[in-house]
Design a binder for these strands. Structure first.
Lengths: 113, 113
DNA sequence: GACTTTGTTCTCAAATATGAGAACATTTAA
DNA sequence: TTAAATGTTCTCATATTTGAGAACAAAGTC
């Protein structure tokens, strides 16, 4: 979450959407990945905020550096590992759940469970 | 999922549970990580089976080798990355959702949303 | 039996994430 | 203004994951 740019971080997705979502399947895959990474970044940020911690605070608890936490909260970061997500969840008294959610085939946008 | 050992793969968790869950917080963290990895491995296996694919089939679709898929389905594997989960989800027409679920504080076992 | 398919394990090089310190910008507090 | 706290970006060495091929075991097919 960049400090200055007014936390409207769905911008990246919207731009990609307008640029690519005209039947290009390969790009659609990338978009999905970006959307996922983006969501994770925001969730980490939200969790940290809800806990009232600075990046340095969380870093200390997790056992890493503030810059590493900052990197994880960057919406463009694509390197998330389950190991790190678990470490963060642990110190914030949470557990990580992964779900593979079926995408709609036919027409629409929306996904189904 | 090992071929011979009759797919009862909650064994590992049970063993760890009996061994550690006597107030040892550090081990509890590890257990949570193992549980998560285990769950991911099984989900990949289930998804692949539901799609009627061999490990080699899935590997080809994802763009990797069968041994890599086998590794991902090993309950002991701890190296899952979001990137790989997204790639697998994509070729099986799914998307990955990550949730940080609050753990119960007080007494019990069960987790809450 | 021989053949094929499938899953598994081992190895290694290549790619990628992590840990960490430094420097900087911005905000808040004194 | 000065100082402290915070978030960000850069860089690098280290650790980890990935890609891939080989070899093997087990099960099914012919």
């Amino acid at each position: 979450m960049k400090k200055t740019k007014s936390v409207k971080s769905s911008d990246a997705i919207d731009i990609l959407h307008r640029r690519y979502v005209r039947d290009d399947a390969k790009k659609l895959a990338e978009l999905e990945a970006v959307r996922a990474d983006n969501a994770v970044a925001r969730k980490i940020y939200d969790l940290r905020m809800k806990a009232g911690l600075s990046q340095r605070d969380l870093a200390k608890r997790v056992g890493t550096s503030a810059s590493a936490i900052c990197r994880l909260e960057d919406a463009d970061y694509e390197g998330h590992s389950l190991a790190m997500l678990n470490r963060i969840a642990e110190v914030l008294d949470r557990r990580v759940e992964i779900r593979f959610i079926m995408k709609r085939h036919g027409s629409g946008h929306l996904a189904i469970a």
